[in-house]
Structures are given as C-alpha cells and as structure tokens.
C-alpha cells in the first residue's frame, strides 16, 4: 500500500508541510525533510522550483527564484533525494509545475520518483482531463498518486468527478487566492469547509492555502483530514534557516 494511503488511515489530523527544494541553501533539502519528520510532521511536499509559478504568491515564487539561481534542477533534486528512504519513512510528494516535468520526460520523471520512494505528485497546472487521457497509466505503472485540487468555485459535479478519480487525498484550496495571501479564515471559508465535509467524499480532504499557524490549522482540520502549510514555513526558513524547524512545528500542533 502507498505510504500516503497508509497515513490517511491513521486516526489523527494530518499536518503536511511544503517547502521549496534548494531553499534557503541549495543543499538544505535532505536536512529539512529529516528535521520535519523528527518534529512529528505527517507528510511533506517537496516543491520543485519553477521560473513562472502561476498559482503561488510572492513567498514561494521568491524562494523558487533563489533555488533556481543556486542551480536547482530536477536532476539535482533527484540526486539529493536518492538515499532519502534510508532515513525518512513518512509520505513524500513532489509539488511542481508541469513544464519542468515535461522536459525531463514524464515517464522518466515518474520512474525516478518511484526509484527514490516518492509517493505522489501535485501538479497544479496539469488539467484533470489531460492527466486521465495521457498520463494516468504512467503514474499508475510507477505506483504514484496524483493529487487533484478543488477550490470554493469548483462545482459539486466536478468535485464528485475529482473524488471518483482520486486514489489518495483531495487538495482542498481554502479560498480564491494564490498561496500565502490569507491571514485567517472567516465565515465564507467555514461555510465552504462544511459544504465539502457534508458531501461525504470517498477521498479524504487536506486543506491548503492560508494555513499559517495553530489557529488556522485547528479551523481547517475541524472539517478536513489534515492541512498543509507552505508559505508560512518558507518564511520561517527565510528567517531562521533549518535550525529551529521543530519549534515551528510544535507551535502548530
């Protein structure tokens, strides 16, 4: 069974953390992952940096630019991660945009992920239809879970469809916004969280975008299986480097 599915079966609310590979320093990737696991994080999204991250706000774009300027590439990330399964056992996903994966070759990319022990991919700009028609078979061949996004604007009909084709969790975007632009949840978000919860979907939902602290984590996980923190953690790394990761995580739980 895929590590993501195992984790989703655990009777707890999941904390997932996103960070940009190669940031703050090019070779911080492995140490960040190990520290996050030690601090009790349930799942990690490793951001593959892209020059033009459309769905991300300034924090993640800036960290991506820094990582790229330091020389981060797909090949380098795979090299950094090649022994990661010797020390880390929680689910690991790669989150990135489609173009760098396409240039690496989708089959090659998936094969590398499987060799390393990556469990799933999140590709915001790969449309559901393109995935099901052209790439699903390749992902499945390498045992990779593809995670789809839904937003407050997604119709019920489309949510049902996404639920149908999801074999891991659904990434629930908290609000109509790019990453890192929220400062708390109001009634609108809560109504949306409730609406989705009441749909009784088969795939568990993990909420992302706008989770930055203990309060927003609690609010989100009241209605969903877990929550993802991205920009707030990247900001923490900017200020503190890799040293005080456990402090950041403890403050969330």
């Amino acid at each position: 069974m895929n590590r993501i599915n195992q984790k989703l079966e655990e009777d707890k609310k999941l904390l997932s953390i996103y960070f940009t590979a190669g940031y703050p320093q090019l070779n911080d990737t492995v140490s960040i992952i190990e520290n996050l696991e030690k601090s009790g994080v349930d799942m990690i999204e490793i951001g593959l940096p892209f020059s033009d991250p459309l769905a991300d706000g300034p924090t993640i774009q800036a960290s991506s630019t820094t990582a790229l300027n330091s020389g981060m590439t797909s090949e380098m990330l795979f090299n950094q991660l090649k022994n990661i399964r010797k020390t880390v056992s929680i689910p690991l996903l790669i989150m990135g945009y489609f173009n760098p994966m396409m240039q690496y070759g989708i089959e090659n990319f998936c094969k590398k992920c499987a060799e390393i022990g990556i469990d799933g991919l999140i590709i915001p700009d790969l449309p559901v239809r393109e995935y099901t028609e052209k790439y699903k078979a390749i992902f499945e061949k390498y045992g990779l879970i593809n995670v789809f996004l839904i937003t407050p604007q997604t119709s019920d009909e489309r949510i049902r469809f996404v639920d149908e084709i999801s074999n891991g969790f659904i990434y629930m975007v908290s609000s109509a916004a790019v990453t890192g632009s929220q400062s708390g949840f109001g009634n609108v978000q809560e109504a949306y969280f409730k609406r989705i919860a009441s749909m009784n979907l088969k795939a568990p939902q993990i909420i992302g975008f706008g989770i930055s602290n203990s309060e927003t984590f609690q609010q989100a996980t009241k209605f969903a299986k877990g929550a993802i923190i991205g920009s707030a953690f990247v900001n923490h790394l900017t200020k503190n480097g890799v040293n005080s990761i456990s402090k950041f995580v403890e403050a969330i739980r």
């Binding site: 459309l54 915001p124 449309p127 996004l149 937003t151 997604t154 119709s155 916004a177």
Partner: peptide
C-alpha cells in the same frame, strides 16, 4: 494549445 491551468482558474 489546450488549457494547462491551475484548478483555481478552471471556472
């Protein structure tokens, strides 16, 4: 061609 857009833009 196509429409390689994040889900947020889909609607």
């Amino acid at each position: 061609g196509g429409a390689y857009i994040p889900e947020m833009l889909y609607p």
